[in-house]
Design a protein around this nucleic acid. Structure first.
Lengths: 116, 116
DNA sequence: ATTCCATATCGAAGAACTTCTATACGAACG
DNA sequence: CGTTCGTATAGAAGTTCTTCGATATGGAAT
């Protein structure tokens, strides 16, 4: 998409289109879709706070500690964690009865780099 | 949504305590909601590419140049631009028949800072 | 004035999301 | 074994999203 150039505006031609034809940025499409997937996963206040807690903790956090942070049922928190896992933002491990979640920083690096 | 107060963990009736020491959130609910709103607006590939185009051009871009970038109807692109405007990510100006959109960098700074 | 043009809004269809309750699963305890 | 506990999944209800075609809006040109 960096090679994309937008034509300057011209006076309105009678029967012709308003703008020059523009090349679709195919190369950047996968990039945008990957970042949009991550952004979408972060686009919920509950998941945003879940990620923040996991990030600040810089280690694994038990689900049983995450559930009481919200006025939500345990299955709902589990659902949000699953969404974050599907987006590649977090990973999880089982230890006996308990499940521990942690942030996978690589998933956030692409969008973070794009934003800055 | 929860105010993110941490309830004390209940330990298992028998055996070891359920979890590691409690983790406290470092971002407030309103902060998370604001950033989630921006992330949600970016959580669509079309809007992600729209913002990318506007950012790379570092100026105002006519809607008529944005529409042919996508295989979407003009009302759909207009709808996505409206979502970005509602999230504070872009602004728009009218000049005669044409509408020009531009990025408002401040909206991206908060989430950008949080990510890095 | 009237017609044309670029954009925004409306209304609807179908998909996806968030949340719940109920339940299933697997590990640990007795 | 059966029970209990922490977690995940299933199914359903209600809401929100994405997209379209149709139409409205308002500036510009004839």
């Amino acid at each position: 998409m960096s090679t994309l150039e937008l034509a300057p505006k011209q006076k309105r031609p009678k029967g012709e289109p308003c703008c020059e034809p523009v090349v679709y940025p195919e190369i950047e499409r996968e990039h945008a879709e990957r970042m949009a997937q991550v952004a979408k996963a972060l686009g919920d206040p509950v998941r945003m706070q879940l990620v923040d807690v996991l990030r600040k903790h810089a280690g694994k956090v038990c689900v049983c500690e995450l559930v009481p942070l919200f006025n939500l049922s345990q299955p709902t928190v589990s659902h949000h964690l699953k969404k974050l896992r599907e987006a590649g933002i977090v990973g999880s491990e089982r230890e006996g009865l308990w499940a521990y979640y942690y942030v996978k920083p690589a998933a956030l690096e692409e969008i973070s780099g794009w934003l800055s």
